[in-house]
């Protein structure tokens, strides 16, 4: 490995960490604003113009707040759990091509940390490992709400891993590669080539599973405030709680990227326009996360399970079979 590659990789890692941490922050701001507007409110208004510095205020608060470790928790596990959530979220980012490659001078930069040929498997795997954050955090908290939340998290994540996996199986079959860059290239031909058109069912299943994986409304059961307080986060304070939070928002962004790349053509032909297009698509998907939160109610845990195993899973399997048949024919 040459020096330039190492420097490039480190720079990319740092940029991703910084950009997505910041984005998580802005994400909260946008979420509050969007939700507020949809609910005829103003949202944050006091810190900075239009409440823009609210993120800074929150950041300062999170960083300076006392890190309380309650008495009966399992201390090391309790402490490590939020790190798992945040870390797995960022690790998943390693296989995502955020932009087309570009050149600085005569050096070509690939805006992907590691273009591994099993990118999708890797992302699915790492995101699956993210389950350990809520799972361990909730178990270690010595809190009944956290425990319930853990139970829910385990059930939901494991169930929806299945949907995620099955739903992208059909597109995978079509593309014939596990690399996201190949996916992008596959759809480079323009809007008409987007996989969403050929695999609408897979797309919908994937988005639903994405909601479940990120624990967003209408599947916000893991930390459903009105029944189990903040779920696995109940006992957390300060920056540890903040890590859970960053993890959740980073996850939302990455899922949006993955969705955009898998189904909505990614950055297309690699031109500037394509890059902007990708950002636009991601933004819309992110906005969609917020939008649903304003519009939809939460479902019950049993309904969620029902939906997964009795509705989505069969549909996904049928979709694969049909895709297979179509490809064969």
């Amino acid at each position: 490995m040459d020096m330039a590659f190492i420097i490039e990789t480190v720079v990319k890692i740092v940029v991703i960490l910084l950009v997505f941490s910041a984005l998580a922050g802005f994400g909260t701001y946008f979420e509050r604003k969007v939700l507020a507007f949809m609910q005829r409110r103003l949202g944050p208004m006091h810190v900075g113009p239009y409440g823009l510095l609210q993120i800074a205020a929150d950041g300062i608060k999170l960083f300076t707040k006392e890190d309380i470790i309650p008495q009966n928790v399992v201390k090391p596990i309790f402490q490590i759990a939020p790190v798992i959530t945040a870390a797995t979220a960022f690790m998943a980012a390693a296989a995502i091509p955020f932009m087309p490659s570009f050149t600085i001078g005569d050096y070509t930069v690939h805006p992907i940390v590691a273009d591994i040929n099993i990118g999708i498997l890797y992302i699915l795997g790492v995101m699956g490992a993210g389950l350990y954050g809520p799972l361990l955090g909730g178990l270690a908290s010595a809190n009944k709400w956290s425990l319930i939340s853990t139970a829910r998290a385990a059930a939901i994540f494991i169930s929806y891993e299945v949907i995620t996996g099955l739903s992208i199986l059909a597109p995978l079959m079509m593309v014939g590669s596990l690399s996201l860059i190949d996916f992008n290239t596959y759809q480079a031909g323009g809007i008409g080539n987007w996989i969403v058109w050929s695999q609408p069912v897979a797309f919908i299943l994937f988005v639903i599973a994405g909601f479940a994986e990120t624990g967003r409304t209408p599947f916000h059961l893991v930390a459903n405030d009105h029944e189990i307080i903040d779920g696995f986060g109940t006992e957390y304070s300060g920056m540890r709680w903040g890590l859970f939070f960053i993890g959740e928002y980073a996850n939302m962004f990455f899922i949006s990227f993955v969705t955009a790349i898998l189904f909505l053509g990614g950055y297309g032909d690699g031109s500037l326009l394509g890059a902007l297009g990708l950002l636009l698509k991601v933004s819309f998907l992110f906005f969609f996360f917020l939008w649903t939160r304003a519009a939809w109610p939460d479902v019950r845990p049993d309904q969620l399970m029902w939906l997964c195993w009795k509705v989505l899973m069969p549909i996904a399997v049928i979709n694969i079979v049909i895709t297979g048949i179509v490809m064969m024919v």
Binding site: F37, M38, R40, W291, T292, A294, A295, W296
Partner: peptide, 9 residues
Amino acid sequence: GLWVVLREM
């Protein structure tokens, strides 16, 4: 639902 909130926004 989506429409209603979007409209309000």
